[in-house]
Design a binder for these strands. Structure first.
Length: 319
RNA sequence: GCCGAGGUGGCAGAGGCGGUCAACGCACCCGUCUGAAAAACGGGCUAUGUCGGUUCGAUUCCGACCCUCGGCA
């Protein structure tokens, strides 16, 4: 095993964790310390005008907004506002964006820090996405969306019995995943799947977490703070220009406050349900920790956590 | 005090004219994940107020008690 000791060996810091663990603040801190720039890996923060609901930054941050990036407390964060509301996005597109941005950051001799809560994006970027060449076929999707999961499964089994059998119990009943699988099968003759491209270079993956109770409490508090600081009016503004169904499809804040604004539910109920869904989201986000090969997990409820992470990053930079 | 209604899992709430009862939703817990991922999906969890009676058998019938909610006083 030979170590690369040259300083040109590219380095990347990844920070992953569920919502409310302070990923962005930590990233900003690290960026300042090591002359870095941030790439956001978040499937909702990509959208312009979705700021409070997606929790792009703290209320007391100094921000300067640009298309495609923000400058927050003096640190550049790439990946905010790269899409207009209702535009499509995907993990494949994220990979391209992240690669491009990473190169750019390297050229300017800065340290790239990938931070976000969308585990799927980070995993895809780090370890590749096999079917990344096969695009969405919206016509096919809309016809297939009329079928039940069982029907979809039968179709898949006809096209590719092996693939169908290899699915787990969850995916076998998941229409969305089945439709995607069919989409891949249908386009196979034309497009061959790409070979998996793993990220090459030195990566340090930091995971941020805490107990469920701790995170739930923090998330509730933060939600109330945002409700008191314009979250509802952000949704109202969006409703004027955007199809409400799109907002519903985003989930969480945008879904529940849209339901409230549309008069489908009382505000109190909406907030209650939203809290529950945020909790469930936190649980799901935690599941991704096991998807990352080498991850250093820190409990943010411990006072020493930030210091330990800083030390760990210092060592990583020094090598 | 009287009359009426009712007491089902952590919450909410349905059915069952006596037969291993026990839905759905929420919460909570666990999990899946290769171009929608804050999405979509899989699994799990705990119950019939108390005490007696009738019966082969009671959550379901009867009685007492306790409690809750209405109305009358």
């Amino acid at each position: 095993m030979h170590k690369k000791t040259n300083e040109t060996s590219p380095k990347l810091i990844v920070i992953y964790g569920p919502t409310v663990t302070g990923k962005t603040n930590l990233a900003i801190k690290l960026a300042k310390r090591h002359n870095g720039e941030i790439i956001s890996a978040d499937s909702r923060q990509i959208f312009k005008n979705l700021d409070i609901g997606t929790g792009k930054v703290d209320f007391n941050s100094k921000v300067e907004k640009h298309n495609g990036y923000w400058i927050v407390n003096g640190v550049k964060i790439h990946g905010f506002d790269i899409k207009k509301p209702e535009e499509k996005y995907s993990a494949a597109e994220f990979i391209k964006f992240a690669k491009k941005t990473l190169e750019q950051i390297r050229k300017s001799k800065k340290l790239p820090i990938l931070v976000g809560g969308t585990g799927f994006y980070i995993k895809s970027f780090l370890y590749g996405l096999e079917s990344a060449g096969i695009k969405e076929n919206s016509k096919l999707r809309s016809t297939l969306s009329k079928l039940t999961a069982l029907e979809l499964y039968h179709r898949l089994a006809k096209l590719n019995a092996q693939k169908a059998q290899s699915l787990n119990e969850s995916d076998k009943k998941n229409p969305r995943r089945l439709i995607r699988a069919l989409e891949i099968e249908k386009s196979k003759p034309k497009l061959s799947t790409q070979k998996i491209e793993e990220f090459e270079g030195n990566v340090k993956v930091i995971g941020l977490t805490a107990s469920n109770e701790y995170l739930y409490k923090k998330a509730n508090k933060w939600l109330w703070a945002r409700l008191d600081n314009g979250l509802v009016s952000e949704v109202e503004k969006l409703l004027q220009t955007v199809n409400y169904r799109w907002l519903l499809s985003l989930g969480l804040e945008y879904k529940w406050l849209t339901l409230f604004k549309k008069g489908k539910i009382e505000k109190e109920q909406a907030v209650k349900r939203l809290q529950g869904e945020i909790h469930a989201f936190i649980r799901r986000q935690k599941m991704w920790f096991r998807q990352f090969k080498k991850i250093e997990i820190h409990n943010i409820s411990q006072k020493s956590a930030i210091k330990l992470i800083e030390k760990s990053i210092d060592d990583f930079i020094k090598f």
